[in-house]
Computed example of a mutant assay.
Amino acid sequence: MDASKKRLARQRRQQRIRKQVRGTAGKPRLSVYRSNTNIYAQLIDDVAGRTVAAASSLETDVAKGEDGKVGVAKQVGTLVGQRAKDAGITTCVFDRGGNRYAGRVAALAEGAREAGLEF
């Protein structure tokens, strides 16, 4: 599959998901962006249009260990879960960003759940 067709298909999936998934102040949207090398997660209040908490694999708190990208994604999930708890958030809705719920995206979700975030 051509790279531009792949990107367009992912954007269409993302728009289909985004129609149904909305974040509020009490229950923000946990948005995940996955690039080839890094992974980013942020809790977004769509009503106010602001980010409540965020974490990424570029931060110094995240150790690039022997678990590879999946281990790093789980650490990012744990970090965003802890920051959400500090902000007083316990529940959220999960936005996988058009990616399959497998591998790094699933590991990030698992890490966030282990940190106490419910979705």
Rank of each mutant, 00 (worst) to 15 (best):
T78D: 14
A73G: 14
S35H: 11
A55H: 07
A41N: 05
N99D: 06
A87Q: 13
S31C: 11
D86H: 08
V52E: 07
K64S: 05
A53T: 09
K69L: 13
A48N: 13
Y101S: 04
K27G: 06
R100K: 14
S57D: 05
A84D: 03
R100H: 11
K64P: 00
D95E: 03
N38G: 00
R104L: 09
V70E: 14
V72R: 14
A63V: 15
Y101W: 03
T78S: 15
T78F: 09
I89C: 04
E59C: 01
K85P: 10
V80N: 04
D61Y: 05
K69G: 14
I89K: 06
R83E: 13
V70L: 09
V47T: 13
L58W: 00
D95S: 02
R34M: 03
D95P: 03
Q75E: 09
N36E: 02
R29E: 05
R96V: 13
R83S: 13
S31K: 00
Q82S: 14
L43V: 12
A87R: 13
G65L: 02
V52T: 13
G65H: 01
V76Y: 01
N38H: 15
A106E: 13
L43H: 12
V80T: 05
I39M: 12
Q75Y: 02
G68P: 00
G97W: 04
V62K: 07
I89S: 01
D86Q: 15
